[in-house]
Simulated scan of single mutants.
Amino acid sequence: MDKEHAKGAGKEAEGRAKKAAGELTGNDKLKGEGEADKAEGKVRKAAGDVKDAFKDDKNKKAS
């Protein structure tokens, strides 16, 4: 797991926690922040996947 994947997983976990807290307390703002954090985490993980694909492609060409 590289840096982007780790950051993405952390942000998704933070988002799930915020969303759950918002649902429990009825705080729509916190729930919305949680959804946004989850989305950011997914984007970071996707960016990590793209980086991995380029690294793999670069390594294949170098072989």
Rank of each mutant, 00 (worst) to 15 (best):
G26P: 03
G26K: 02
G26S: 05
G26C: 03
G26L: 03
N27C: 08
N27R: 05
N27M: 07
D28E: 14
D28Q: 11
K29L: 14
K29T: 15
K29G: 12
L30M: 10
K31W: 06
K31T: 03
G32N: 14
G32R: 08
G32T: 13
E33N: 07
E33R: 00
E33K: 03
E33S: 02
G34S: 01
G34Q: 01
E35W: 03
E35D: 09
A36N: 03
D37R: 08
D37F: 08
K38V: 10
K38D: 04
K38C: 04
K38G: 07
A39M: 07
E40L: 11
E40Y: 04
G41P: 02
G41F: 00
K42D: 14
K42T: 14
K42I: 14
V43N: 05
R44F: 14
R44E: 15
R44C: 04
R44H: 12
R44Q: 14
K45T: 10
K45R: 13
A46C: 05
A46P: 08
G48K: 00
G48Q: 00
D49L: 06
D49E: 12
D49T: 08
D49I: 02
D49N: 05
V50L: 12
V50A: 13
V50T: 09
V50Q: 12
V50G: 00
K51N: 07
K51A: 10
D52V: 09
A53C: 10
A53G: 08
A53F: 15
A53I: 12
F54W: 14
F54L: 12
F54M: 11
F54N: 10
F54Q: 11
F54P: 02
K55L: 12
K55G: 04
K55I: 14
D56P: 05
D57I: 00
D57P: 00
K58W: 12
K58A: 08
K58Y: 13
N59D: 15
